[in-house]
């Protein structure tokens, strides 16, 4: 051994970092922008439909829009389409609320085989769990702060 192991390992890791193929961020960003934007446009259309045709307002209108988008996200996941769009669009499909629907439907489909309780029931939140945990925790903190300072 001419060099201590740690030094060799460090040099190796640096070489790996330098040589490894990189994700093409620019192309990915453009695709994410357009697909993510398209999902938002669909959301706006749903909202307009709720407002004009169903005469919904305020919270009802927002909830209606979310529910329809979540349904569409879950449906396209179940049909095996969502992951294909995601391969192309990256963050464009994971950031909108449809991505949240996908992250719950995908484990639900997958873990159904291990039963409805220990499989589906337990694993349903295996990916979306952190969003809920920290979403709820964050809202509690914000609520407390608002209570104190208002």
């Amino acid at each position: 051994m001419s060099m201590p192991k740690d030094k060799r390992a460090q040099i190796y890791r640096e070489r790996v970092k330098a040589l490894q193929p990189k994700s093409k961020a620019s192309g990915m960003c453009v695709r994410a922008f357009f697909v993510g934007g398209l999902i938002c446009c669909i959301g706006q259309l749903i909202r307009d439909f709720g407002e004009k045709a169903l005469k919904l307002t305020g919270n009802d209108l927002s909830t209606f829009t979310c529910v329809v988008l979540i349904f569409l996200g879950a449906l396209t996941t179940g049909l095996g389409i969502y992951d294909r769009i995601a391969k192309f669009a990256g963050a464009g499909t994971s950031v909108p609320i449809t991505g949240f629907a996908n992250s719950m439907t995908a484990p639900a489909m997958e873990y159904k085989k291990e039963g409805f309780i220990s499989g589906l029931g337990t694993r349903l939140f295996s990916i979306a769990g952190p969003v809920l945990t920290y979403g709820v925790a964050g809202s509690v903190i914000v609520g407390l702060l608002s209570l104190i300072f208002h």
């Binding site: 095996g80 992250s103 873990y111």
Partner: peptide, 17 residues
């Protein structure tokens, strides 16, 4: 995939490596 990564229908992109 399900053991080491994500459920199959989960929309994720694989890095080039």
């Amino acid at each position: 995939e399900r053991q080491f990564r994500y459920p199959l229908e989960m929309g994720v992109t694989a890095p080039p490596t």
